[in-house]
């Protein structure tokens, strides 16, 4: 049976290497690797990075990219940027939200409330596409999960703008980015040093902003990541203890048969 077990282990290794290869094989240019605080089984978000990332998102990305699935209230929930209740109310109130119809049947705008979803920059996909030269700026709510390579990929694209190599043809309104498919992207480099002024005094370098906004986008894609990690550790500890107890029980029960021999 030992032989079988060894084979099983080898086979499962093959199985997993296939699964992982599947993920890796299509990355053409090696992505930049960042030592994210949310990686690993006890990974957590860096609270201040999330708050800065939110600032980058609103001041830079939000003029084109919507975030339909996230509400202002989420900004104050545990495991996220954890703005205070008053901060969340103030953030929400900064936005004009269309509501209605009122008693007269008209739509009207009012200041946002925490329960509102993030206000989109364009009324619909067609408008967003038309305003951006035919390239729809994707909704950012689950963007990190919707791209192979996840957080590393988003960070790499933000840092991947370069002058095209000699002889590389670029059409109008298309930019060179070494991490994109075909090395072409229709979004101009969104980040430049000092484009935002961080309220906590952090130096707004390109790398810093790219890291912060990627952290923020990772949170919006997976808002319960911290709860998931915490619960996972507890579940694994529980299962290990329980399986140990069951193993001992099993040995005791089967010893009745073995002693009969």
């Amino acid at each position: 049976m030992c032989n079988l077990k060894a084979r099983f282990i080898i086979l499962s290794l093959i199985f997993f290497s296939i699964t992982f290869n599947q993920v890796k094989s299509e990355e053409k240019t090696k992505l930049l690797k960042v030592d994210w605080s949310f990686k690993g089984i006890t990974g957590k978000f860096d609270r201040s990075s999330l708050q800065r990332g939110y600032q980058v998102y609103t001041e830079v990305c939000a003029s084109c990219h919507s975030m339909n699935l996230v509400s202002y209230r989420n900004l104050g929930e545990p495991g996220g940027p954890e703005f205070s209740v008053d901060q969340v109310k103030a953030i929400a109130a900064n936005f004009e939200v269309e509501d209605g119809p009122n008693a007269d049947g008209d739509m009207f705008t009012r200041p946002g409330r925490p329960s509102d979803k993030f206000v989109s920059p364009y009324p619909n996909v067609q408008a967003a596409t038309a305003a951006n030269g035919g390239a729809y700026p994707p909704d950012m709510s689950v963007l990190v999960k919707a791209r192979k390579g996840g957080s590393d990929y988003i960070y790499s694209v933000l840092m991947g703008y370069e002058d095209p190599p000699a002889g590389f043809e670029l059409e109008d309104g298309v930019y060179y980015n070494k991490y994109m498919d075909g090395k072409k992207i229709k979004m101009s480099n969104p980040l430049s040093e000092g484009i935002v002024t961080y309220s906590d005094g952090t130096d707004a370098t390109e790398a810093q902003m790219a890291k912060d906004v990627t952290t923020f986008l990772t949170w919006t894609a997976e808002p319960h990541l911290e709860t998931r990690h915490k619960m996972g550790v507890k579940v694994l500890i529980f299962l290990t203890i329980f399986s140990l107890l069951v193993y001992l029980s099993m040995k005791r029960i089967w010893s009745r048969i073995d002693s009969e021999k």
Partner: peptide
Amino acid sequence: RRDFIFTASYTVGAIG
């Protein structure tokens, strides 16, 4: 000893 392991298993299982 057997009782202890069985009782512990049942308890932990019930918690789970």
